[in-house]
Simulated scan of single mutants.
Amino acid sequence: MFTYHINMKTLFMLLLFCHVASTGKIVKHSLKVLLTATSGITNIPEFVNFGMVDEVEMAYYDSNIKIVETKQDWMRDFMKDNPKHMEWYTQMCFKYQQVFRAYIDDLKQRLNQTGGAHILQAMSGCEWDDETGEVIGFSQFGYDGEDFIALDLQTMTWTATRQKAFTTKLIWNADKASLEYSKYYFNHECPHWLKEYVHYGRSSLQRTDLPSVSLIQKTPSSPVSCHATGFYPDRAMMYWRKDGEEHHEDLDHGEILPNHDGSFQISVDLILSSVAPEDWRRYDCVFNLSGVEDDIVTKLDKAQIRTNWGKTEIRSGEGGRQVSDLLI
């Protein structure tokens, strides 16, 4: 399902297209292009394009800046070595800016939407298994927070996922030239560029840095925060367990945030007011990093909590923001 948020970068990072976290060596790579057009929303660009390789943002374009911004050093190297590709990428962004503007205007007219805020999203791209050589393409659209239409690459036909997309399905399925180009793009062009990007970014894309994990409590009545910092990439999960089962009550989940050195941090707070002292031993904090098989498990132990009144701290791994910074 599609969703959107007033902050455009958060919008795309929260798109509910799931991927399976891998363990060990990454053999399946993905190239995703995330696009949006908006109408009636004044504080964000009318069109945004994100390019992502293996869930890492590598390029960004919007209708305000009107240029492609490369987001990774390896992508900047690739564009420097392939200047015509940068020109092509920019032209494609500008083209889809116009196309999506037309799409959303057409949908508003067809659905009799005369005002209000509307948003059209799309995700397209391909996955490539570098061991088997298998390539899988995908293209799907959402409108106003709901799935709308998707391309079936087996039959090369568009499938409406909502009744209001039925007319769009008929129009797009009648455009045989576009369907032929899509077939070529998803089977040849997309995997070609994905392989090129992976070649340039392999050392970075397959980098894994384990975090330092600490238990932090600002005051005796504050929640206990399980804080991990210094990990890479940002495909990570952190949660509390009770008796070995994931715990969902009395928690405050923080977002994954960037550190100044390019690594990431996250924290999950456990509210202790409803936890009896004798039950502390039943809780632990679990950190999982995509591509790493073993979790980092931190027991809830008073003796291991870092506080402003002087206790010890637990650490696992290297780097990141100092725990003392979080206690101020």
Score class of each variant (00 low, 15 high):
residue 216 I to A: 14
residue 249 E to P: 15
residue 237 M to K: 11
residue 179 L to R: 06
residue 223 P to L: 00
residue 246 E to C: 08
residue 206 Q to M: 14
residue 193 W to A: 00
residue 247 H to E: 15
residue 215 L to V: 02
residue 213 V to P: 05
residue 242 K to G: 04
residue 183 K to F: 05
residue 239 Y to T: 08
residue 236 A to M: 09
residue 241 R to G: 06
residue 218 K to L: 06
residue 242 K to I: 02
residue 209 D to H: 13
residue 219 T to A: 09
residue 248 H to Q: 14
residue 229 T to W: 05
residue 253 H to P: 13
residue 220 P to V: 11
residue 231 F to D: 11
residue 247 H to M: 13
residue 226 C to A: 15
residue 240 W to L: 05
residue 201 G to E: 02
residue 244 G to C: 12
residue 232 Y to C: 03
residue 181 Y to K: 05
residue 195 K to R: 04
residue 247 H to S: 14
residue 219 T to D: 12
residue 215 L to M: 08
residue 226 C to I: 10
residue 248 H to E: 14
residue 200 Y to V: 02
residue 219 T to P: 01
residue 234 D to W: 05
residue 185 Y to I: 01
residue 251 L to W: 04
residue 234 D to H: 08
residue 203 S to K: 11
residue 228 A to T: 11
residue 239 Y to W: 10
residue 230 G to F: 03
residue 245 E to D: 10
residue 203 S to Y: 09
residue 245 E to R: 15
residue 194 L to M: 01
residue 228 A to N: 10
residue 228 A to W: 09
residue 208 T to I: 15
residue 219 T to Q: 06
residue 195 K to L: 00
residue 211 P to C: 10
residue 252 D to G: 09
residue 230 G to Q: 04
residue 238 M to G: 14
residue 254 G to L: 11
residue 185 Y to E: 09
residue 186 F to Q: 05
residue 217 Q to N: 10
residue 218 K to M: 07
residue 180 E to Q: 08
residue 254 G to S: 15
residue 245 E to C: 09
residue 193 W to F: 07
residue 216 I to L: 15
residue 211 P to S: 10
residue 181 Y to I: 01
residue 217 Q to C: 12
residue 195 K to C: 00
residue 186 F to T: 02
residue 201 G to W: 05
residue 231 F to M: 08
residue 193 W to N: 00
residue 205 L to K: 05
residue 212 S to C: 15
residue 211 P to T: 15
residue 201 G to D: 01
residue 249 E to H: 15
residue 191 P to L: 01
residue 192 H to G: 00
residue 226 C to L: 10
residue 250 D to Y: 12
residue 252 D to Q: 13
residue 190 C to R: 01
residue 196 E to Y: 01
residue 180 E to S: 06
residue 189 E to F: 05
residue 244 G to S: 10
residue 187 N to A: 07
residue 235 R to Q: 06
residue 189 E to L: 01
residue 248 H to M: 14
residue 230 G to L: 06
residue 215 L to Q: 04
residue 183 K to N: 08
residue 214 S to N: 13
residue 183 K to C: 03
residue 182 S to A: 04
residue 227 H to V: 01
residue 241 R to V: 15
residue 228 A to C: 14
residue 212 S to G: 12
residue 247 H to D: 12
residue 183 K to P: 00
residue 195 K to N: 07
residue 221 S to Q: 13
residue 195 K to I: 00
residue 227 H to S: 02
